Simulated scan of single mutants.
Amino acid sequence: MTDPASDSDGSREPQFSTAFDPAHGRPVSVAPGILRVTADNPSPFTFRGTNSHVVGDAARCFVVDPGPADEAHLAALLEAVDGRRVEAVILTHTHSDHSALAMRLAAEVSAPLLGARRKAAPPPAAGVPVLDAEPAGDLAFARHLEDGETLDLGDRSVEVVATPGHASDHVALALSGSGILLSGDHVMAWSTSVVAPPDGSMGDYMASLEKLLSRSETRYLPGHGGPVERPVSFVKALLHHRRMRETAILKRLDAGDETIPAIVAAIYPGLDPRLQGAAGLSVLAHLEDLQARRLVCSAASPGGAAVYWPAAR
C-alpha cells in the first residue's frame, strides 16, 4: 500500500518508476529461481496488483504473500508451484491484499503458514479514517517469525528482517547468495508506503529504513510494482522525503494550522479525493511521531477532533 502523494522535485527525492507490466495470471521469472505472480487487484493503494513470489529449485519452493482471495490468482500460483513441494507460505505482513488467500493456499499445498506477530494496537481515534488494510481474519500461523532468524527453504537460506512501520508485523526476507531482498510494502519502486495508525508507526518505519542501509542487498523485489535496482540510494531518498514531509507539517503548525484536514489541504495540493483518508493518516503518523519526540502537543477540540500545535509555542 502506498502513500498518496510523493514529491518529485529536488535531487534527493526518490526517483519513482511506474513502468511495470503485471502480466496478471502468468508467472514471470524475475531472478534465477524466483517467479513473480501479480494478482489482478489494482487500486490507488495496490498499484497494478499485489505481487506474490514463488522461490525455489526444481523440487522444492516456498511462496511469499499469496495475495487477495481470488480464484484466478490461486490458479496462477499453483501453476507457478508446478507440483513442487511447498515448504512454507510466508507473509511479509497481514494486510488483506497480501494475506487473504494465505490459509487457502497453505491448505491446498499442505504447507505451514508463517508470519510475524502483530502488535496489539489501540482502536483508531474518533473521526480518524481507517484504510481497508486490516488482516484477513484470524490467520492460523504454524509459528511466528522472529527478527534475524534463518529459514532453510527451497534451495537457499532465508533471513527474516523485521521492518515494522507500514504494519507492526512487517518483515522483509533476505535470500542468501542472491543479493535480493523481498521487501514487501516497506520499500517499493513506484511510490512510498503509507504509514497508517494505529497499527502503522512513523518512528518504526524510519528506523526500519535506517536498518536496511546497513545491509548488503543490491536488489529489492517489492509487494507492488517493479524491482528497486539501487536500494541504498533509494532508501536514503525515502528517508529524505519523509524528513521533508515532517518539516512541511511543522511549518504548517507554525503558520497556525491546527487540524489534520487543514494540513492535508496545504501540503497535498490537488490530491485525488480517493486518497484524502490515506493522506490524513500519513499526517497523523508524522504527528504521533513528533509528539513522541516532544516537538508537538495535542488536545481534543470541543467537537472531539484533535488539534495540534508546536511544543515550543
Rank of each mutant, 00 (worst) to 15 (best):
Ile267Asn: 04
Glu217Gln: 15
Val63Thr: 05
Leu151Asp: 09
Ala106Pro: 00
Leu145Gly: 08
Ala305Gln: 13
Ala305Cys: 10
Ser191Asp: 04
Glu13Asn: 07
Arg294Phe: 15
Val194Glu: 00
Val195Gln: 01
Ala116Thr: 05
His170Ala: 11
Leu287Ile: 09
Glu258Asn: 02
Leu175Ala: 09
Val171Pro: 06
Ala311Ser: 06
Gly303Lys: 06
Ala75Gly: 15
Asn41Pro: 11
Leu284Asp: 14
Leu145Glu: 07
Ala58Leu: 14
Ala299Phe: 04
Pro231Lys: 14
Ala111Phe: 14
Val128Pro: 00
Gly25Met: 10
Arg118Gly: 00
Val194Arg: 00
Ser178Ala: 11
Ala196Ser: 10
Gly56Glu: 08
Ser178Phe: 13
Leu221Arg: 11
Ala312Met: 03
Pro231Glu: 14
Pro123Met: 04
Val89Gln: 11
Gly256Pro: 08
Asp3Glu: 07
Ala162Ser: 07
Arg60Thr: 15
Ala126Gln: 04
Leu250Pro: 04
Asp169Lys: 09
Met244Lys: 08
Val63Gln: 01
Glu217Gly: 10
Val195Ser: 00
Leu238Met: 14
Ser201Gly: 03
Ala80Phe: 15
Pro310Lys: 02
Gly177Met: 08
Ala126Ser: 05
His186Pro: 02
Asp21Tyr: 00
Pro68Ser: 04
Ser99Asp: 11
Ile34Tyr: 12
Asp169Asn: 15
Thr247Ala: 14
Asp57Thr: 07
Met1Ser: 15
Cys61Gln: 08
Pro197Ser: 03
Leu284Gln: 13
Glu108Trp: 06
Asp57Ile: 07
Val171Asn: 13
Trp309Ala: 08
Ala80Gly: 14
Gly225Phe: 13
Ala312Thr: 10
Val307Phe: 11
Ser191Arg: 03
Glu258Thr: 02
Gly200Asp: 01
Ala120Asn: 01
His95Cys: 14
Leu209Trp: 00
His93Cys: 15
Asp82Ser: 14
Leu131Arg: 02
Ala196Asn: 07
Ser301Cys: 07
Ala39Asp: 13
Gly280Glu: 12
Ser11Asp: 15
Asp257Lys: 02
Thr38Leu: 10
Val235Gly: 13
Asp82Gly: 06
Ala116Leu: 05
Ile34Ser: 08
Arg85Cys: 12
Val130Leu: 07
Glu288Cys: 01
Val54Leu: 03
Val30Gln: 03
Ser157Tyr: 03
Thr163Trp: 02
Pro22Leu: 02
Phe45Trp: 14
Ala39Ile: 14
Phe141Asp: 01
Phe16His: 15
Tyr205Phe: 08
Ile263Cys: 09
Leu175Asn: 10
Phe141Gly: 01
Leu151Phe: 09
Ala102Lys: 00
Ser8Lys: 14
Glu229Gly: 13
Pro68Val: 06
Gly165Met: 12
Thr150Phe: 04
Glu108Tyr: 05
Ala121Met: 09
Thr92His: 04
Pro122Asn: 05
Arg118Val: 00
Ala39Leu: 13
His93Ala: 13
Thr50Trp: 11
Met202Gln: 05
Gly179Met: 07
Arg242Glu: 15
Ala292His: 12
Asp3Arg: 01
Met1Ile: 11
Glu159Asn: 13
Ala39Ser: 15
Glu210Cys: 00
Pro123Asn: 06
Ala136Tyr: 06
Asp57His: 08
Gly25Phe: 10
His166Glu: 03
Leu284Cys: 13
Ala39Thr: 12
Tyr205Asn: 06
Val86Lys: 11
Ile180Thr: 05
